[in-house]
Design a protein around this nucleic acid. Structure first.
Lengths: 239, 239
DNA sequence: GCGACGCTTCGGTCCGGGCCGAAACATCGG
DNA sequence: CCGATGTTTCGGCCCGGACCGAAGCGTCGC
């Protein structure tokens, strides 16, 4: 049997979407490093991503072209720089799901790194808050009847809406957008669900605006000030 | 810069778990087909997965060893067969996330197909009946005192022997063989035990001989006729 | 005991693709 | 215009790994 004949036979057997292309993207170390770096939610240039991946400019360009072709990242040309970002929160959600499995099975990176505790405490997951702080938001809202879980959705209750509004977030503005308001996202460090979607993004944005915390200049860490930590815990009490 | 030096530099930059190994598993077409086949929730043998993947037994064995080492699938040795299933619902969730992205961007493959419900209703498990029908045989015999369960054996009672004989099965012939008469086999679609062993094989053979059902020309499906379905339910009433 | 069957291991082949250096292209500042 | 800088494209090297056939085990059935 020729390779072409076998390939077509296999293709006929397939059921469901073709997950091979996406898996191959994550399966390469250089591309995995790029995607992990982009999980911080910031747009990075080709050169920066080449350094993150540990490869030369030529190899990086090839990788970025493939990632864009598959639809995992988006390109924005600005002057002589090419900026790249994740294509959407669905990509971030998928990457976190993979990372969760990897962490569960003990496939941790060679060196935990000095920033690892900070990352577990609070980090950016694409555009919302993850880590202990992210889970706290979810638990606080859930524990006080802030939302109700249906089969596959989260719906805010009146009480939950009031608490969100008290933080200065305009819910009507968020709901006008096509993007889902509430989504769950599995946390690889806490192995718990936290809040994603436009509301999750708005909450992170509000926390930064209120200066409760600042984003680290590089990476995904979110650093709370002492006063900000206190205000955050008051805003999202447990039980 | 040497490869080793670059690798350590990259390791220092890395944040979070290593997603590369899992991505590489999904990235190979043969392994992706295996995982997709296992997404149905049933346990499949190495040979069946080799056919699903479109590769030989040797290549399939290699793939299954790697998938098991990474923790995506679990192995259950049963006789000379090796059954494989997904390691857990988290694996399924991750695969669904990847498949969702693939479907959103790429093109859909063949849909699950009409055979799937038939397989869950009645299918061949090595040489005996599994699925809803297989479980029904076990439940009917057990519920009416057809056999008694000891620590590790199943023994037919006189009442059970009479019911088997009434179907036209020569029990003395079966017992003359060295193969165990009764065995239990875990059903992966029903998650229940059903009847295996030489009696289980004889029952399936009898059902085919009596033309209550026919085996599908391909695959494992067992298709009951309307009259055969009625006769089957009369022969194995519940409670 | 024997052969048949399913799965794994071993040895070897071969192809895809990841990488780099060099050159081409694009953009900016002067 | 010019060189400097960022990115892509091209040509070629090379290694990892996917694959198969054959041999080695273990299990089943007679």
């Amino acid at each position: 049997m020729s390779d072409a004949a076998r390939a077509s036979t296999v293709a006929d057997m397939k059921e469901g979407p073709d997950i091979t292309r996406i898996g191959a993207m994550i399966g390469d170390p250089a591309r995995a490093n790029m995607l992990t770096a982009l999980l911080a939610g910031r747009a990075l240039t080709a050169g920066e991503l080449a350094r993150e991946a540990g490869v030369g400019a030529a190899a990086a360009s090839e990788h970025l072209r493939k990632l864009e072709a598959v639809g995992l990242i988006a390109r924005l040309k600005q002057g002589r720089h090419h900026y790249f970002r994740l294509a959407g929160d669905e990509v971030a959600h998928m990457l976190e799901a993979v990372a969760g499995l990897a962490a569960h099975h003990g496939h941790l990176r060679n060196r935990p790194g000095p920033r690892d505790p900070e990352l577990r405490q609070a980090r950016v997951c694409y555009d919302h808050l993850a880590g202990t702080a992210g889970v706290r938001i979810y638990d606080s809202l859930a524990g006080r009847g802030g939302f109700v879980l249906t089969a596959d959705r989260i719906d805010l209750t009146d009480g939950g809406r009031a608490r969100i509004a008290a933080l200065g977030i305009d819910l009507a503005l968020l709901e006008a957008k096509r993007r889902p308001l509430c989504r769950t996202c599995l946390d690889w460090s806490e192995r718990r669900t936290h809040l994603a979607g436009s509301l999750g993004a708005a909450l992170l944005d509000r926390i930064i605006t209120l200066k409760w915390a600042n984003r680290a200049p590089e990476g995904r860490a979110v650093l709370f000030s002492a006063a900000g930590e206190q205000a955050f815990q008051d805003a999202f009490p447990l039980i």
